[in-house]
Design a protein around this nucleic acid. Structure first.
Length: 463
RNA sequence: GGUCCCAUCGUCUAACGGUUAGGACAGGUGGUUUUCAAUCACCUAAUCGGGGUUCGAUUCCCCGUGGGACCGCCA
């Protein structure tokens, strides 16, 4: 059996984290089964579709490492084919022209609302031999939905789903301006693209029942459906654009790395035993629809940070540095080559205190900025004794010919003895002078990462 | 309101009729440490309620309760 999957977003806004997960699941299923994964841009809403969003969707997915097979499929280019299918359905008697005006429909909806009964289009023109066709009204084409019986979909995630056909109205497939609606376009395209597995959000369940009827009418094979539960906000509602941190961009901005987010999204709604960390290859090998749960899951920021931290500490430092550089070039100010060299050498300890790339950036500020800023509270900690300590350190430090942890350690120890204090009494003033804060990387790491002249300059300037 | 659906620690989830209900994140306590972090050890914490079926229900069925999705000439 062949596996053709697709992700079909509409470019009407930035790519949503829920959409990203849908794309991931489609990609995973295709890759696992040696099938194809396609990207289809559903841009038939001319008003709201924007080219910038199309680009953003493609680059976001690329960032995550989800590469689609072939060219992206642009739905708007296929409109004439969609229209001809609508006409075919009309000819074969599976669809009909409806001359109701929008006002007429709205009136009916109003009435139903007042009476508290559910609105269903009254099928006025479904079998309207006796009705006079109004000259002034441009018709829409409606699909003749089944009136009785049930439709069953064997959903790969949800199991067997049944709906009473009477609850599905005669939905519109061609608008009065002759443009196809989603129900038609998506169905025709999925058929044209030979899609075998449609993985999409649970909010599409009803659409699958409608679309199945189009497949049946055309005599086409119905694809397998898998409706995955939605991702909820912390408030427990379907994620909307108003929720913060709901677009991919928001996570990239705070310094989440792609593999970590991919791993997080993978485990949101899917699981494999007790395993938490999956390489990309493992996720392909182990993924299957049986592992997808049925209930919606909430976004958990602390989990994202935690997985990101795991990745930051696990991946090799060269790769990490590469990600950091990419991050800096996008969101921070550029740094020069010599600083980059120091940074690369310092990754091994800068990363230890970081949950995100932004944390690494912050930890590295004392390297990046020649002029360090000392906080007010930290400045207060520099008393006369501190200055004596710093001064003593300078004298000893200047004498050292080869700098290393081994040569530095005896100096610190002797200063602790001399001033009858503890490590904090010596380390804190030095760290403040060097980093600008009493918090920071390990003292030896700091001293060794800076040039000798730089260390002296910083220490002297505080005296 | 109508239709469809979901329900295990705060969160993500494991246990596909038999476990002291497991893991991870978060939270807490303690050890270590060079500040902050990290790390190590330990702890707290869940089967929504009620009925069945069964020798035995987290698991199967029914009814409540709670939550969600959909109800566009948007996709």
């Amino acid at each position: 059996m062949s596996f053709n999957c697709r992700f079909a977003p509409s470019p009407t806004g930035p790519l949503h984290i829920g959409g990203v997960r849908t794309a991931l699941f489609n990609w995973l299923l295709a890759k696992k089964n040696k099938g194809k994964y396609f990207l289809r841009i559903e841009d038939t809403d001319k008003e709201r579709s924007k080219d910038q969003f199309k680009k953003q969707i493609i680059s976001s997915l690329a960032w995550l490492g989800i590469q689609h097979d072939g060219e992206e499929y642009i739905q708007s280019k296929k409109i004439s084919e969609h229209i001809s299918i609508a006409e075919e359905l009309l000819e074969k008697g599976f669809a009909y022209k409806c001359y109701c005006t929008e006002e007429e429909i709205n009136d009916q909806k109003e009435k139903c609302k007042k009476q508290g009964i559910p609105y269903v289009y009254n099928r006025k023109w479904r079998d309207a031999k006796d009705l006079k066709i109004p000259e002034s009204v441009k018709p829409v084409i409606r699909f003749k939905s089944k009136i009785s019986g049930n439709t069953i979909i064997k959903d790969l995630v949800q199991g067997e789903r049944t709906i009473s056909n009477s609850t599905i109205e005669d939905f519109i497939i061609l608008r009065k301006d002759k443009s196809p609606t989603y129900q038609l376009s998506a169905t025709v395209d999925d058929h044209e693209m030979k899609i075998t597995h449609v993985i999409r959000g649970d909010d599409h369940m009803i659409n699958s029942f409608k679309q199945k009827q189009i497949y049946d009418a055309m005599g086409w094979d119905v694809p397998n459906f898998a409706h995955i539960p939605l991702i909820h906000s912390e408030q427990g509602k379907k994620l909307s654009k108003r929720d913060n941190a709901s677009t991919l961009e928001d996570y990239i901005k705070i310094g989440i790395i792609a593999d970590a987010l991919r791993n997080y999204l993978l485990r949101l709604g899917w699981s494999y035993k007790d395993k938490e960390i999956f390489t990309k290859q493992e996720s392909i090998d182990l993924f299957d629809l049986n592992g997808v749960g049925k209930s919606p899951s909430k976004l958990d920021m602390s989990r994202i940070y935690s997985i990101n931290e795991t990745y930051i500490k696990t991946i090799n430092e060269k790769d990490l540095f590469h990600f950091l550089k990419e991050y800096i070039s996008k969101y921070k100010t550029a740094i020069d080559q010599s600083k980059e060299t120091v940074l690369l050498k310092s990754m091994n300890f800068l990363k230890n205190k970081a949950k995100t790339l932004e944390d690494i950036w912050n930890n590295a500020q004392y390297i990046i900025n020649d002029k360090i800023k000392i906080g007010v509270d930290d400045k207060k900690l520099i008393d006369d004794l501190s200055k004596k300590v710093i001064n003593d350190f300078i004298n000893e430090y200047e004498k050292i010919s080869s700098l290393s942890r081994e040569t530095l350690e005896p100096i610190i120890k002797s200063l602790i003895d001399k001033h009858k204090t503890n490590f904090k009494g010596v380390g804190q003033p030095l760290r403040i002078a060097l980093v600008g804060s009493r918090f920071g990387p390990g003292l030896y790491d700091v001293i060794l990462s800076l040039d000798k002249s730089d260390v002296l300059k910083r220490l002297k300037s505080i005296l």
